[in-house]
Design a protein around this nucleic acid. Sequence first.
DNA 1: GGGGTCATGTAATAGGTTACATGATTCT
DNA 2: AGAATCATGTAACCTATTACATGACCCC
Lengths: 213, 213
Amino acid sequence: MAETRAVSNPLALAVLSYLTQRPMHPYELSRTLRNNGDDRSIKFNHGTLYMVVKQLGKAGLIREQQTSREGQRPERTVYALTDSGRQELHDWLRELIEQPQHEYPTFVAALSLLAALPPDAVIPLLRRRSQRLGEEIAQTERLIQTTLAAGVPELFLIEEQFRVTLLHAETSFVEDLIGRIADPETDWATAWAQHHSQQNSEITATEPAADLR
Amino acid sequence: MAETRAVSNPLALAVLSYLTQRPMHPYELSRTLRNNGDDRSIKFNHGTLYMVVKQLGKAGLIREQQTSREGQRPERTVYALTDSGRQELHDWLRELIEQPQHEYPTFVAALSLLAALPPDAVIPLLRRRSQRLGEEIAQTERLIQTTLAAGVPELFLIEEQFRVTLLHAETSFVEDLIGRIADPETDWATAWAQHHSQQNSEITATEPAADLR
DNA sequence: GGGGTCATGTAATAGGTTACATGATTCT
DNA sequence: AGAATCATGTAACCTATTACATGACCCC
């Protein structure tokens, strides 16, 4: 059944969600998104928003409600949610919550190719990462505090709390990884170092770089 | 300076990395990628690979080395890494390791719009998520075990270990969140429930759906 | 009263995914 | 010998990002 959604860009989800509150025109959506800081959680981009709005219109999930003109400003088209749009919003949100998606964070990609660098080059890089993760944690926590202090209910900060959780987990992992690499007992790390120290002695054609995996 | 990389698709990183071992033709890259399970960490797609190879060629990071024909199979073009390609590989990898990237996982997007569903609909969804996260953890751990048992050094499984770490952190978060929502002491959760229970009494135009944030 | 930046949108370009194509090998 | 699958690549289509445009308001 659920072929694939008519509009798959997560920005569309945000648009549907905002339109449950009241009809809006694209620029207002844009401002609201940014004001609410949702652009930290959903990739946002001026041009993309207009594209998504057009796609949603074509899919019948929103509908052009009126075009108004205020002063000499360009005409603005106001969009409203349709019934099937509301339906889609709920269905989509449910899916995203109940089903973990397989994703491709860049650090995972980097880790999968880690062997391409020598271990003693990797350690300082990991140290800097750990430090920067710490900065991001601090910054996110400050954001949470000041937003709460401004009277916003915690409900609207759950994403940021989640982010902090992930950042902590990543930090522990990185720290632990540094330890494992540096530990002279870790045999794969020593083999890794040796492999790189032989990078110039390519006369050893005995080991034909067979797939290591 | 570092304008932006000539080729930004992470699949290109994998290509550069594999070509450090020996020159290959695209299809061989494709097979190797899949055999090594790197397609779990880097989004892979047949058509994209050819695109990326072309881009890398144009950017001078790899170079066409020969075209050979074996039997009646179509001609295959073998590519080799250039010096600047090796340079780019190292530079790029370093950057990815030392600098955390801001990313947009879909669960973060969903959490940021959580308020659009009523809390008693969210709880069972989170329960199912938690359960599925458990399954993913188990599956990834089995993968790690069998791969290690096949003689692959742990160095090539660090990404999967990292994934498990993240999955555990996410599970704790989700469990905790369920608790917070269900807890009658949590005031924002009760306010949230009330907001949704009034969804039909839209006569109350006194609260003009002001930005909650 | 001229220089930013706000408000609003369109168009050009680049990037990525899916579909198509076709000979070779292998299986039954 | 016909069906399925492997091997290899190209082309068409969709998506997303960047660049372009243009009048209004605001500041000094």
